[in-house]
Design a protein around this nucleic acid. Structure first.
Lengths: 188, 188
DNA sequence: TATTATTTACCGAACGTTCGGTATAAGTCA
DNA sequence: TGACTTATACCGAACGTTCGGTAAATAATA
């Protein structure tokens, strides 16, 4: 078979970049074609389902990344606070120090019942659940654990919004450094 | 002169709704026309600068609303904590309990140097400054005041993202109720 | 040769925008 | 008052462009 012009991983990297930056509607096929170096028709060869397939693939891979790289350190041996510090480090590189915004934000606009929206919701839902589980294992009560997980993710999303709008990455950095404390606080 | 089909305020209300929900690119003139009840050409009579003018007008009014309704209670007499509680109340209705997402989020996607983006940045910048000023007046050190203001706005944005994605308004409500504490904490 | 990746060329539909024109209200002046 | 002008609010139809998507042909590997 002929060689691919762009390999799967790099293709998804660039797609991620476009969807992150411009959102779903803003990510036109022209822009995608320009960024990936593939013509529209070639993109349809790679993603028969078109733009929606691309967005789903991007979300899928981001979810795997999150699970494997960010959430995994939480399940390894060591003191809970150390494990969370490890996660913070992974989050830092995942979001490029706040310079990359979150797909769960950029892809969550538009009509309520869109297919993409459901994927986004499921992604965030899994994130909350997995994070809450670990916090619970660290000795926080079940109810508080879920709240802390939600609050942490809220804070991540919020600092990323501020970073995007203001180009100020301070709040994101600060939030990461305070994660061990805020996430494991016994009483809210 | 003939009477208007939709008055200025209601028109801006509906425009706000569309931009909030769909973002700038997602808010097509067809959708706007449908929601406002005005034909495309009529919208250009009201907003000669087209879609961009509409978004700017919407941002402008939201900024005035924020200044007048949300930030104003912070400058009135009374205990700082009470004043912040008042602001929280106003924020609650401003964002409809978390069901309305923030224009500063939905309009902040797309190319970095767009005119809209600059308006959004200026809007959030003003918000941080005004909030920081009040926190400083309540006795918090200058540096901490700015950080607390940024953190509060981050948390607002974050809980709104979570609310939009998950349809869970708990984090937003919780965040508002904890605002007096978090905003006035002396040490971080 | 069979298969696969990519391309050129093209499609109908929707995009944001503009134009020509109509209906209504208010001001002007014989 | 009544005819005339001006200004406003709106609309239908079209503008050129871009949208997401497809069919047929070419190039390259196995």
């Amino acid at each position: 078979m002929p060689i691919t012009k762009v390999n799967e991983n790099e293709l998804l990297d660039r797609l991620t970049d476009v969807f992150r930056t411009y959102g779903y509607e803003g990510a036109s096929l022209s822009k995608i074609s320009e960024v990936t170096g593939l013509q529209r028709a070639s993109l349809y060869h790679r993603f028969p389902g078109g733009k929606e397939d691309m967005a789903k693939a991007v979300l899928e891979r981001a979810g795997q990344w999150l699970t494997g790289q960010v959430l995994a350190p939480l399940s390894e041996p060591g003191k809970p606070a150390d494990r969370i510090r490890h996660m913070a480090k992974e989050l830092h590189s995942f979001y490029a120090g706040g310079k990359h915004c979150c797909l769960l934000d950029s892809l969550s606009f538009g009509s309520d019942d869109s297919d993409i929206r459901q994927h986004v919701q499921q992604g965030m839902s899994e994130w909350v659940d997995k994070l809450a589980k670990v916090v619970r294992e660290a000795g926080v009560s079940s109810k508080n654990a879920r709240q802390h997980a939600q609050d942490a993710i809220s804070h991540i999303q919020g600092t990323l919004v501020v970073a995007r709008v203001m180009k100020d990455y301070g709040p994101f950095e600060r939030m990461l450094s305070e994660l061990p404390t805020t996430l494991l606080r016994k009483k809210s």
